[in-house]
Design a binder for these strands. Structure first.
Lengths: 216, 216, 216, 216
DNA sequence: GATGAATGAGTTTTCATTCAT
DNA sequence: CATGAATGAAAACTCATTCAT
C-alpha cells in the first residue's frame, strides 16, 4: 500500500527574465533551507547561503519566516506531522502488535528515505531550538518513541516479540536503526547502489529477525 | 576480557604542583571542548565557551591548539586511534569471521559507550573539517567501515552470516546500530536505567540474531 | 473662555460609507503615528508598527505620506499651526503685557495638555527632521520663543514683571515649565489625580508668583 | 560648598602612532556614547558612530559593554548614583525643610548643568531600557521624585511652603524646572550667555518665589 | 604561559521604501 | 486604494584569531 505523503522539491521553474518574479517562493525557501542545513548543519548554515540559492537578497527571506530558528522549527514540525500521519494510518489498519510494528517501521522508513534531508534535520537539529519551540519538538520526539515503545510492549505481552531484552532497549534499537537508514548506501547514479525499497526490505528483515520471539 | 584503552575525563585532582597543573590544563582543554561540542555541535560551540569552562581567557587557548578546526581534528584523530587499536587487538585474537565480528562490535561498542561524547563528535562532525584534515578523517571512516565490511564478507563466504542481504547493507546496519548506542537509555542516577555492559550485551545479541545465517 | 481648537483623536465612528472611511483612515494614520511616536520616540517607531495599528499593510501607508520624515513633519507642523493660532487669538484680546503673557500661557498650556502626545513630539523630535524641514521647524520653535520673550520684555519695561532676572532666562523658565506639563500627575481613572484645568491653574499661579515684579 | 562629583570627559591623549594603543578606553567609550546619544537620542545613535569617535572598530566596543542597552543603563546608573549622593550630602546638613529643598535644588541643578548631556539622557531615555533594567531605572526615578516630594510635604506642614497647591503638582513643577535647565541659554562662546552659576541662581530664585508660603 | 584589547569579517535581523499586480 | 514581495542599506552583535605586554 503506497504512502501518499510527498515532500519533494518544487519543480524548478525557469526564470523568464522579463518581470520581477512574484510567485510564492515559500516552498523554494524551505527546500533550499533543507538542502543546505542537512548538508552543513543548522548552525553552520547562513541565511545568506539560503538566500543565494533561492535567488533573493537575504533580507527578503524574512518575508517567509521571522527567524532562522523559526525556519528550523517549521522544517521539524512538518516532519513530525508527516510521521504522525503515517503512524495514524498504520494504526487504522488494526493489525496485531508485531505486524503493526513492522508495518510502522516499513512506512516510516520509506518516508525517511524519500525525505532523507528533512529526516536528517528532524533527528539531529532539535537541540538548536529554544524555549517553547524546543519543548514542543522534544515532546514530538517522545511521542514518536512512545508509538514504537507501546507496540514493542504489546508484542512482548502477546508473546510475538522476545522479552529477554528490556522493552526500552529494543525500542531504541529500532528507532536508531531507522535513524540511520539515510546513510545506507544509496547514492543514485552510482553503479550498484540500492533503491529505497531494497533498503527498507533489508531493514525490516533485519529488525524482524532480531526481535521476534524465539530468536534466542 | 577488559579493554585497556581509556579516554575518560581527567579526574579532578587537586592542583598539587606546576607540572600536574600544566598537564591537567592541556587535557582540560580537550575535555571541555568535547563536552561542549558534543552537546551543542561543533559549529555552535564558541571558543569563548570552552575558555570559560577551562577557566582561562579565550586568547590563551591558542597555546593549546592553533585553530578551532585543529582542535576538532585532534578529537577525531584520537577516536580513530582508539578504535583502530581496538580493531587491531581483536584481529590479533585470530577468531573465525562471525566471532571476530561480534567481538569487534562488542569492544568497539564498549568504547563508544565509555566515550559517548567523543564518539558522538567522531560520527557527526567530520564535515566541519576541511582540506587535508577532512580527507584524512574521511579516510579513517572508510577504514572503519572496511574493517566491518571485510568481516561480513568473510562470514558470508564461510556460511556463518546470512547472504540473502547485500554485504554493504549489513555493514551499514551494524555500524549504524553502533553509532546509535549513545542514545540508548542510560542516564546514570536514574532509577532503572542500564549499565554499559547491559547495553552492549543487548546490542550484540540483537545484531547476532539478525545477521546469523539461517535466520530466515 | 473656551478655546476652540481641537486635535483630539478622531472619534471611532462606525464606517458608514466610502467617504467617511477614507477620511477616517487618513486621520487614523496620523493618530496612530502620534500615539506610537510619543510613546517610543520617532527613531524607535517603525512604519510597520503604525501600519499594524491602523490595520493596513505597511506598503499602503505610503499612500498617506511620502516618507517617515514627512509624517513627522506634518505632526509638528500641525502643532505649530495650532499654537500659532492660539498666540494670535490671545494677541487679538489686546491685554497689557503681564495679563497677555499669563493668558498666553494658560491657553497654550491647555492645548499642550489636551494634546499631550502631539505636544511631546513637537518638543522632542524636531532633531529628527533634516534639511529644509528641519530649518523650518527650528524657525517655528524660535517664533514660539519670541512670542513669549517679547511679552516678558514688555512686562519688564512696564514694571509688571521682575527685571532682576535676564529676560532670556525668564523666557526659558516659562517655556520649560509648559513643556513639562505633560508629565504632571494626571492619569485619568486614577483616584485622586488632576484634571487639565487644575494643572493649568497651578502652573499659571506658580509662574505668575515667580515672575511678578516685587517678588523679591 | 562646592560639590565634588565630576563626570567630565577624559583628557584627549594624543595617539602617538608607534604602538597600537592599549590604554583603557572605558571612559572614552562612555563619554562618546553620552555625546552622541544626547545629541541624536539613544535609538538614532549607532554603535558604529560611537566606535568611529572612539577610534576603534565597532566590534571592539563589545569589550566595554555587552549590549547597546547595557551601555545606556550604565550611563543612567551613574547619573542616579551621582544625584543620590548629592541628595544624601544635602540631607546630612540637617537644614529645615524649605532650606533643605532649595539647597537640594541648587546642588542637583549644578550637577545637571555640569553634566548636561548625561542628565539629558537620564531624563529622556529610560523608556529604551527593558525588563529588569527598565524596572530598576523607573525605581530610581521614583526615588528622585520621592526625595523632593517629602521635602515639599514637610515644608507645607511647617508652614514655610504654600499649601494651596497640591504637593504632587508642586513636586512635578520643581522637577520639571530642573529637567529643563539644560536648555536654558548657555552656549559657551556665544557673546552674552550665562554661566552655570547664574542659571542655578535664577532657577532657585524663581522656584523659591513661587512656592514660598505667603506668595498668594 | 597568560592576558585582554583589538581586529576584521562574518552573522542574524531590521526597516524605510518601491512597485507590479 | 491596497497588497505583499522584494530591495538595499544599515543595524546590532558574534567570533575565531592575533599580538604586545
Amino acid at each position: 500500500m503506497a504512502v501518499s505523503i510527498q515532500s519533494e522539491k518544487a519543480p524548478p521553474e525557469e526564470k523568464n527574465g522579463k518581470t520581477r518574479e512574484r510567485r510564492n517562493r515559500n516552498d523554494s525557501v524551505i527546500d533550499e533551507a533543507i538542502a543546505v542545513m542537512s548538508e552543513k548543519g543548522y548552525a553552520a548554515t547562513s541565511i545568506q547561503e539560503i538566500a543565494d540559492r533561492v535567488g533573493v537578497l537575504k533580507g527578503s527571506l524574512y518575508h517567509y519566516f521571522s527567524s532562522k530558528e523559526e525556519l528550523l522549527f517549521r522544517i521539524i514540525e512538518k516532519s513530525h506531522q508527516d510521521t504522525s500521519r503515517i503512524s495514524a494510518e498504520v494504526g487504522a489498519l488494526d493489525l496485531p502488535p508485531l505486524e503493526h510494528l513492522l508495518e510502522h517501521i516499513r512506512r516510516t522508513s520509506e518516508w525517511f528515505l524519500r525525505n532523507r534531508e528533512r529526516a536528517h534535520i528532524y533527528f539531529t537539529e532539535v537541540r538548536n531550538l529554544s524555549g517553547e519551540r524546543h519543548a514542543e519538538a522534544i515532546q514530538w520526539g517522545r511521542m514518536f518513541e512512545t508509538d514504537v515503545s507501546a507496540l514493542v510492549t504489546a508484542g512482548q505481552e502477546n508473546g510475538t516479540i522476545r522479552d529477554d531484552l528490556d522493552q526500552r532497549l529494543v525500542t531504541r534499537y529500532i528507532i536508531g536503526t531507522m535513524n540511520n537508514l539515510r546513510s545506507w548506501p544509496s547514492r543514485p547514479g552510482s553503479k550498484k547502489q540500492f533503491g529505497n525499497d531494497q533498503i527498507v526490505d533489508a531493514a525490516v528483515t533485519l529488525i524482524a529477525d532480531s526481535i521476534r520471539a524465539g530468536s534466542d
